[in-house]
Computed example of a mutant assay.
Amino acid sequence: MRSSLTRRALAAALLLTSTLAPAVAVAAQPGGEGRPSERAVHARLLGEKIVPHKLDFQGTTVGGFSGVDRNRCTGEYVFISDDRSYLQPARFYTARLDVDAAGVHSVDFTGTHPFLQPDGSVYPSPSVGDGKAVDPEEIRVDPRSCDYWWAQEGDRSKAAGAGPVIQPSVQFAGPTGAYRGQLRLPSNYEITMDERGPRRNQAIEAITFGSRGRVVTSAVEGPLLQDGPVPDLEHGALVRVTQQTRGGRVLGQYAYPLEKIFAPSDPTSPWAPDTGVPSILAFPDDPERYLVLERTWVAGSGYKIRLFDATTRGATDVRATDSLAGQPVRAMRKTLVADFHTLGLSTVDNTEGMTWGPVLPSGERSLILVSDDNFDSEAVTQIVALAVR
């Protein structure tokens, strides 16, 4: 999701500058309905790197990174840009990251390709108005084939008759962006004209593979229209998390408890608070357990980024529940792993993507996260590395 805001200018980064912060351990703390397992998860900062604003690479504008994953076949990382073909065609980038226990040392882009439609053409800008535009938000590398699975939010018109409805989707692409198919999504992920389904700009931003590639899990960023209002200062909300087979059969759907808004909004701002789940990541050894990223922006207070350890174990399967509003469902349990304001980062920005990195000599697993700068000079493309135990 892109925030429509202009914030206080950040210090400009002229070169790729690595920041190695002191190791800060953040113990898991209670959140949601309690800890999902007996093993507390800890996270500490390894380092960060800022990519220069609007870096030119192979004739494209680097930025808008809303998802990242690691390709086991090449050792490279893949980043998806959420440029909706306004600057250049909707696309992804590959890069080599030099990350170890001492920090993030370099980010070297190695390639970029546009996503292609079934007919081999690139995706048009929404301004064309033909209903074929996409809103790229998440990318995952298929553990079996190393093809790319990517999610896009589609588009719900601001008002009736204002433009075509574009349905959210999860598509498959080859290593150079060629179209290879599409995942069949749950019926309640569909945008309908009777005000049901995902809210505008709050559809699928999060997908992950689990069970060695046998299970695909997705999360809707915010509550479906029929599931109740968005979070406010007093109440959180429930968003749907769905487990499916690779062929699209729904295995289960669960309610994830989204936090309430953390601070009052500046009353002079025209922008409402913006919160949701931009990324979800399966644990390698537990098919019911996930890292869930929650990202919130509030006018006058900026961003709050929190990482949670969550589980579907014991949660109510809500796939047949038409509306979660007022229903006695048992939500997924979750535990706070890290609040980014406690990690010692140079700035806390619009973090939207995450993936597992290499195992460290300490036995900890590295976690790579990336922020979406929205191509705004007052935001940053920030690559962060954490150590997770």
Score class of each variant (00 low, 15 high):
Asp317Leu: 03
Leu307Trp: 02
Val337Glu: 04
Phe308Asp: 07
Gly314Gln: 08
Trp297Val: 06
Pro278Trp: 11
Gly326Lys: 01
Val348Arg: 06
Thr355Lys: 00
Glu294His: 09
Leu307Asp: 01
Arg295Lys: 09
Phe308Gly: 04
Gly363Asn: 12
Glu352Lys: 05
Val359Phe: 11
Lys334His: 09
Val292Pro: 02
Val370His: 00
Ala310Leu: 05
Gly326Pro: 01
Asp349Ala: 08
Ile280Glu: 06
Thr342Ser: 13
Arg319Lys: 15
Gly300Ala: 08
Leu369Arg: 00
Ser366Tyr: 00
Leu343Gly: 06
Arg330Lys: 15
Asp285Lys: 14
Val277His: 08
Arg313Gln: 14
Gly344Tyr: 11
Lys334Ala: 07
Thr275Lys: 07
Ala338Leu: 05
Leu281Cys: 06
Ile368Phe: 01
Val370Ile: 07
Ala282Pro: 04
Val292Glu: 04
Arg333Leu: 08
Trp297Met: 07
Asn350Pro: 12
Val298Glu: 04
Arg289Trp: 10
Leu291Ala: 04
Leu307Asn: 01
Gly363His: 09
Thr335Asn: 14
His341Asn: 13
Gly300Tyr: 09
Arg319Phe: 14
Thr312Glu: 04
Gly353Thr: 07
Lys304Met: 14
Asp309Ala: 09
Trp356Cys: 01
Leu307Phe: 07
Arg295Phe: 09
Arg333Gln: 14
Pro328Ile: 01
Ser346Asp: 13
Val359Ile: 15
Gly353Lys: 01
Phe308Pro: 03
Leu307Ala: 03
Val348Tyr: 11
Gly363Ile: 08
Met354Trp: 00
Thr275Gly: 14
His341Lys: 14
Asn350Val: 12
Val337Pro: 03
Arg313Asp: 13
Pro358Val: 10
Leu307Ile: 06
Leu369Met: 14
Ala338Phe: 04
